[in-house]
Computed example of a mutant assay.
Amino acid sequence: MTHPHQNLILDQAQIQQKIIRMAYEVYENNFEEQELVLAGIYQNGYKLAELLAKQLESISPLKVSLLRVTLDKDAPLQSPVDLAPDTVILENKTIILVDDVLNTGKTLAYAMNTFLQHSPKKVEIATLVNRHHTLFPVAATYTGYSLATTLREHVDVVLQEHELAAYLH
């Protein structure tokens, strides 16, 4: 699938390689843990969390719980942050918040606030593309690809069964 007026910055093989590397980094930093909670920001962050979880389970003995984080990215205070399934225990757990692109950090900052209310042991952030335009005190612990962009440029990440790609336009 081609995207008009967009430049491909990561193709499927590159994204898969970055997910493998990120999974090894996560495991190296958390090898003493029994369990990790990968909390993906719905929609693409959750898909990335699924791909990372699958990779982590293939390279490590860690038990990985997946959590879908849903929030209004444009008006995060208008509705509560939803965590699903609500059966995942967060207290004293290592939580890795996952999103496809780290831009201003606003989405991750509001999502992080929800997790802090559950007394986690540690919270880390994983992102496929880090644009370095943070306006909130959020830094990625794990980054697939660092990209210097202008504020007017936009990064689109596609994480579909038939296509894994990242585009800049």
Results as ranks from 00 to 15, higher is better:
63 K>L: 13
42 Y>W: 11
51 L>C: 12
83 L>H: 05
41 I>G: 06
13 A>G: 08
24 Y>D: 10
53 A>Q: 01
46 Y>A: 12
41 I>F: 02
42 Y>A: 15
20 I>L: 14
59 I>C: 08
84 A>C: 05
58 S>M: 09
32 E>D: 14
15 I>E: 03
62 L>N: 09
65 S>P: 05
55 Q>S: 14
13 A>V: 09
86 D>F: 00
56 L>T: 07
69 V>W: 01
86 D>T: 00
59 I>K: 13
93 K>H: 06
39 A>Y: 03
36 L>I: 12
24 Y>A: 13
54 K>C: 11
51 L>T: 01
72 D>W: 02
36 L>G: 05
63 K>Y: 04
59 I>L: 13
36 L>P: 06
25 E>P: 12
87 T>Y: 00
36 L>E: 06
34 Q>T: 12
59 I>D: 08
25 E>V: 05
45 G>D: 07
52 L>Q: 08
62 L>D: 01
81 V>H: 05
17 Q>K: 09
45 G>Q: 04
50 E>I: 08
23 A>Q: 06
17 Q>A: 14
15 I>D: 04
20 I>M: 11
81 V>A: 12
25 E>F: 01
77 L>Q: 14
44 N>M: 06
88 V>F: 04
48 L>M: 13
20 I>G: 11
77 L>W: 04
56 L>D: 04
27 Y>S: 07
68 R>Y: 01
86 D>W: 00
72 D>K: 07
76 P>W: 05
73 K>C: 15
85 P>N: 07
50 E>Y: 08
16 Q>G: 06
72 D>A: 07
34 Q>R: 10
36 L>W: 03
68 R>N: 11
88 V>K: 04
31 F>E: 12
76 P>K: 14
37 V>K: 03
38 L>I: 05
46 Y>W: 08
42 Y>V: 12
33 E>A: 15
88 V>D: 02
39 A>K: 00
33 E>I: 09
55 Q>F: 07
44 N>D: 09
81 V>E: 07
86 D>H: 02
80 P>Y: 02
18 K>Y: 01
74 D>T: 10
51 L>S: 11
67 L>Y: 00
30 N>W: 00
22 M>W: 06
47 K>V: 04
65 S>A: 15
55 Q>G: 07
63 K>I: 10
